[in-house]
Protein backbone atom coordinates (compact mmCIF):
# COMPACT_ATOMS: atom_id res chain seq x y z
CA UNK A 1 0.00 0.00 0.00
CA UNK A 2 1.35 3.43 -0.98
CA UNK A 3 2.01 5.79 1.93
CA UNK A 4 0.35 9.17 1.61
CA UNK A 5 1.17 12.68 2.78
CA UNK A 6 -1.45 13.03 5.46
CA UNK A 7 -2.88 15.17 8.16
CA UNK A 8 -3.69 13.13 11.23
CA UNK A 9 -6.12 14.89 13.50
CA UNK A 10 -6.62 13.48 16.98
CA UNK A 11 -9.93 14.44 18.49
CA UNK A 12 -13.42 14.20 17.10
CA UNK A 13 -14.90 17.59 17.86
CA UNK A 14 -15.71 20.91 16.21
CA UNK A 15 -12.14 22.16 16.49
CA UNK A 16 -10.91 19.05 14.69
CA UNK A 17 -13.53 19.37 11.95
CA UNK A 18 -12.72 23.09 11.44
CA UNK A 19 -9.02 22.25 11.16
CA UNK A 20 -9.81 19.45 8.71
CA UNK A 21 -11.96 21.76 6.56
CA UNK A 22 -9.22 24.38 6.45
CA UNK A 23 -6.33 22.10 5.54
CA UNK A 24 -8.17 19.63 3.31
CA UNK A 25 -6.74 21.18 0.13
CA UNK A 26 -3.15 20.72 1.30
CA UNK A 27 -3.11 17.01 2.07
CA UNK A 28 -3.90 13.92 0.08
CA UNK A 29 -5.42 12.25 3.06
CA UNK A 30 -7.03 13.48 6.23
CA UNK A 31 -7.75 11.03 8.99
CA UNK A 32 -9.55 11.96 12.16
CA UNK A 33 -8.80 9.81 15.17
CA UNK A 34 -11.62 9.44 17.61
CA UNK A 35 -10.83 8.95 21.28
CA UNK A 36 -12.82 6.31 23.19
CA UNK A 37 -15.32 8.57 24.90
CA UNK A 38 -15.93 11.00 22.04
CA UNK A 39 -19.30 11.15 20.25
CA UNK A 40 -20.17 8.26 18.02
CA UNK A 41 -21.26 9.92 14.84
CA UNK A 42 -21.46 13.45 13.43
CA UNK A 43 -23.53 14.71 10.56
CA UNK A 44 -21.99 14.98 7.11
CA UNK A 45 -18.90 12.94 7.87
CA UNK A 46 -16.43 13.95 5.15
CA UNK A 47 -13.23 12.43 6.47
CA UNK A 48 -12.11 8.97 7.34
CA UNK A 49 -12.50 8.38 11.04
CA UNK A 50 -10.51 5.88 13.06
CA UNK A 51 -10.53 5.11 16.77
CA UNK A 52 -7.57 5.31 19.05
CA UNK A 53 -6.58 4.58 22.59
CA UNK A 54 -3.80 6.14 24.62
CA UNK A 55 -2.20 2.71 25.02
CA UNK A 56 -1.98 2.21 21.23
CA UNK A 57 1.34 1.42 19.61
CA UNK A 58 1.88 4.41 17.34
CA UNK A 59 4.45 2.67 15.20
CA UNK A 60 1.61 1.24 13.14
CA UNK A 61 0.95 4.76 11.81
CA UNK A 62 4.29 4.69 10.05
CA UNK A 63 3.17 1.73 7.98
CA UNK A 64 0.11 3.57 6.78
CA UNK A 65 1.23 7.20 6.44
CA UNK A 66 4.28 9.03 5.15
CA UNK A 67 5.10 10.39 8.57
CA UNK A 68 8.08 12.46 7.38
CA UNK A 69 5.75 14.61 5.28
CA UNK A 70 2.66 14.43 7.42
CA UNK A 71 1.38 16.70 10.11
CA UNK A 72 -0.31 15.75 13.37
CA UNK A 73 -2.92 17.82 15.15
CA UNK A 74 -3.66 17.01 18.77
CA UNK A 75 -7.09 18.52 19.29
CA UNK A 76 -8.50 16.66 22.27
CA UNK A 77 -10.61 18.84 24.52
CA UNK A 78 -9.10 17.56 27.74
CA UNK A 79 -5.69 19.18 28.24
CA UNK A 80 -4.22 16.38 30.33
CA UNK A 81 -5.13 13.74 27.70
CA UNK A 82 -3.89 16.01 24.93
CA UNK A 83 -0.52 16.41 26.68
CA UNK A 84 -0.24 12.67 27.17
CA UNK A 85 -1.09 12.09 23.50
CA UNK A 86 1.47 14.69 22.34
CA UNK A 87 4.26 13.20 24.42
CA UNK A 88 3.37 9.67 23.19
CA UNK A 89 3.42 10.77 19.55
CA UNK A 90 6.67 12.69 19.99
CA UNK A 91 8.24 9.61 21.57
CA UNK A 92 7.36 7.64 18.45
CA UNK A 93 8.00 10.30 15.81
CA UNK A 94 10.90 12.59 16.56
CA UNK A 95 10.67 14.72 13.41
CA UNK A 96 6.99 14.97 12.60
CA UNK A 97 5.32 18.34 12.96
CA UNK A 98 2.86 18.19 15.87
CA UNK A 99 0.40 21.03 16.38
CA UNK A 100 -1.54 20.88 19.62
CA UNK A 101 -4.48 22.81 20.97
CA UNK A 102 -4.37 23.97 24.58
CA UNK A 103 -7.08 25.52 26.65
CA UNK A 104 -4.81 28.06 28.30
CA UNK A 105 -1.22 29.23 28.56
CA UNK A 106 -0.34 26.87 31.39
CA UNK A 107 -1.26 23.85 29.29
CA UNK A 108 0.44 25.45 26.29
CA UNK A 109 3.77 25.47 28.16
CA UNK A 110 3.32 21.85 29.14
CA UNK A 111 2.51 20.90 25.54
CA UNK A 112 5.67 22.64 24.34
CA UNK A 113 7.63 20.69 26.94
CA UNK A 114 5.86 17.52 25.76
CA UNK A 115 7.29 18.10 22.29
CA UNK A 116 4.61 19.95 20.33
CA UNK A 117 6.10 21.91 17.40
CA UNK A 118 3.41 24.55 17.72
CA UNK A 119 0.79 25.11 20.37
CA UNK A 120 -2.38 27.13 19.87
CA UNK A 121 -3.82 28.27 23.23
CA UNK A 122 -7.52 28.55 22.42
CA UNK A 123 -8.58 30.99 25.15
CA UNK A 124 -5.63 33.34 24.75
CA UNK A 125 -5.80 33.30 20.95
CA UNK A 126 -9.53 34.09 20.93
CA UNK A 127 -9.10 36.77 23.57
CA UNK A 128 -6.16 38.35 21.79
CA UNK A 129 -8.12 38.54 18.52
CA UNK A 130 -11.05 40.17 20.35
CA UNK A 131 -8.79 42.71 22.06
CA UNK A 132 -7.00 43.49 18.80
CA UNK A 133 -10.32 43.98 17.01
CA UNK A 134 -11.28 46.55 19.63
CA UNK A 135 -7.94 48.23 20.20
CA UNK A 136 -6.55 48.26 16.64
CA UNK A 137 -9.45 47.51 14.30
CA UNK A 138 -7.71 48.63 11.13
CA UNK A 139 -4.46 46.83 11.87
CA UNK A 140 -6.42 43.67 12.69
CA UNK A 141 -8.42 43.90 9.47
CA UNK A 142 -5.34 44.47 7.32
CA UNK A 143 -3.37 41.65 8.95
CA UNK A 144 -6.35 39.31 8.69
CA UNK A 145 -6.74 40.12 5.04
CA UNK A 146 -3.09 39.29 4.47
CA UNK A 147 -3.16 36.12 6.54
CA UNK A 148 -6.50 34.76 5.42
CA UNK A 149 -6.05 35.70 1.75
CA UNK A 150 -8.92 38.16 1.62
CA UNK A 151 -6.80 40.65 -0.34
CA UNK A 152 -3.94 40.46 -2.83
CA UNK A 153 -1.50 41.61 -0.20
CA UNK A 154 0.95 38.90 0.81
CA UNK A 155 3.82 38.36 3.17
CA UNK A 156 6.57 36.20 1.71
CA UNK A 157 10.11 35.12 2.37
CA UNK A 158 12.47 35.69 -0.53
CA UNK A 159 15.97 34.29 -0.66
CA UNK A 160 18.57 36.49 -2.40
CA UNK A 161 20.26 34.17 -4.86
CA UNK A 162 21.33 36.41 -7.73
CA UNK A 163 23.73 39.28 -8.02
CA UNK A 164 21.75 42.41 -7.46
CA UNK A 165 22.49 46.09 -7.31
CA UNK A 166 21.70 46.13 -3.58
CA UNK A 167 24.26 43.48 -2.67
CA UNK A 168 26.58 44.93 -0.06
CA UNK A 169 24.09 47.64 0.91
CA UNK A 170 22.28 47.86 4.22
CA UNK A 171 18.61 46.82 3.93
CA UNK A 172 17.35 50.24 5.04
CA UNK A 173 19.40 52.02 2.36
CA UNK A 174 17.49 50.47 -0.54
CA UNK A 175 14.39 52.23 -1.82
CA UNK A 176 12.35 48.99 -2.00
CA UNK A 177 9.10 50.89 -2.17
CA UNK A 178 9.79 52.71 -5.39
CA UNK A 179 11.99 50.18 -7.14
CA UNK A 180 10.05 46.97 -6.42
CA UNK A 181 6.77 48.33 -4.94
CA UNK A 182 7.29 46.09 -1.94
CA UNK A 183 8.25 46.68 1.68
CA UNK A 184 11.05 44.70 3.27
CA UNK A 185 10.32 44.17 6.95
CA UNK A 186 12.75 41.60 8.28
CA UNK A 187 16.06 39.96 7.47
CA UNK A 188 16.14 36.30 8.49
CA UNK A 189 19.19 34.74 10.08
CA UNK A 190 20.33 31.21 9.48
CA UNK A 191 18.67 30.06 12.70
CA UNK A 192 15.41 31.54 11.30
CA UNK A 193 15.33 34.33 13.87
CA UNK A 194 14.30 37.62 12.31
CA UNK A 195 15.67 41.14 12.57
CA UNK A 196 13.59 44.19 11.79
CA UNK A 197 15.37 46.20 9.07
CA UNK A 198 15.75 49.26 11.29
CA UNK A 199 17.01 47.35 14.32
CA UNK A 200 20.62 48.04 15.24
CA UNK A 201 21.72 44.50 14.32
CA UNK A 202 20.10 44.58 10.90
CA UNK A 203 21.37 48.05 10.16
CA UNK A 204 24.93 46.74 10.45
CA UNK A 205 24.18 43.83 8.14
CA UNK A 206 25.03 44.12 4.44
CA UNK A 207 22.87 42.16 2.04
CA UNK A 208 24.59 39.22 0.45
CA UNK A 209 23.64 36.11 -1.48
CA UNK A 210 21.77 33.60 0.61
CA UNK A 211 20.07 36.24 2.78
CA UNK A 212 16.40 35.75 3.33
CA UNK A 213 14.15 38.80 3.32
CA UNK A 214 10.60 38.94 4.64
CA UNK A 215 8.67 41.17 2.28
CA UNK A 216 5.12 42.44 2.08
CA UNK A 217 3.50 43.47 -1.17
CA UNK A 218 0.99 42.59 -3.82
CA UNK A 219 1.24 39.10 -5.29
CA UNK A 220 2.46 40.28 -8.73
CA UNK A 221 5.07 42.66 -7.27
CA UNK A 222 6.47 39.96 -5.02
CA UNK A 223 6.65 37.62 -8.05
CA UNK A 224 8.61 40.23 -10.00
CA UNK A 225 10.92 40.81 -7.06
CA UNK A 226 11.46 37.10 -6.69
CA UNK A 227 12.28 36.75 -10.40
CA UNK A 228 14.87 39.47 -9.99
CA UNK A 229 16.55 38.28 -6.84
CA UNK A 230 15.93 34.64 -6.13
CA UNK A 231 13.49 32.09 -4.81
CA UNK A 232 10.40 32.40 -2.71
CA UNK A 233 8.93 30.67 0.23
CA UNK A 234 5.48 31.81 1.25
Amino acid sequence: MMKTRSALIFGYNEFALEIADNIAHKYENITIFKFDDESKKRNGEKYSVASFDLSDNWDVLEKKFDMENSVIFCALLDDATNIFLTISLRASFANVSIISLAKDKESANKLTMAGASKVIPIVQTTASIISDMLKKPIVTEVLHNILYEKSNLKIAQVCVEQDTFFAGKHPYEVDWKNIYKIIVLFVLHEDMSSEFIYSSKASHHSIKNGDKLVVVGYEEDIKLFEQNVGSRYE
Binding site: F15, N22, I23, K26, F73, I120, L147, A156, V214, E234
Partner: peptide, 17 residues
Protein backbone atom coordinates in the same frame (compact mmCIF):
# COMPACT_ATOMS: atom_id res chain seq x y z
CA UNK B 1 -13.31 27.20 16.36
CA UNK B 2 -13.21 28.68 12.87
CA UNK B 3 -10.43 30.97 14.01
CA UNK B 4 -8.38 28.03 15.27
CA UNK B 5 -9.01 26.19 11.98
CA UNK B 6 -7.79 29.19 9.99
CA UNK B 7 -4.75 29.60 12.21
CA UNK B 8 -3.89 25.91 11.69
CA UNK B 9 -4.24 26.40 7.94
CA UNK B 10 -2.00 29.45 7.89
CA UNK B 11 0.56 27.78 10.08
CA UNK B 12 0.72 24.84 7.67
CA UNK B 13 0.44 26.85 4.47
CA UNK B 14 2.23 30.12 5.21
CA UNK B 15 4.61 29.73 8.10
CA UNK B 16 6.49 32.95 7.29
CA UNK B 17 3.41 35.16 7.12
Amino acid sequence: KELIGMIAKEFIGKPVA
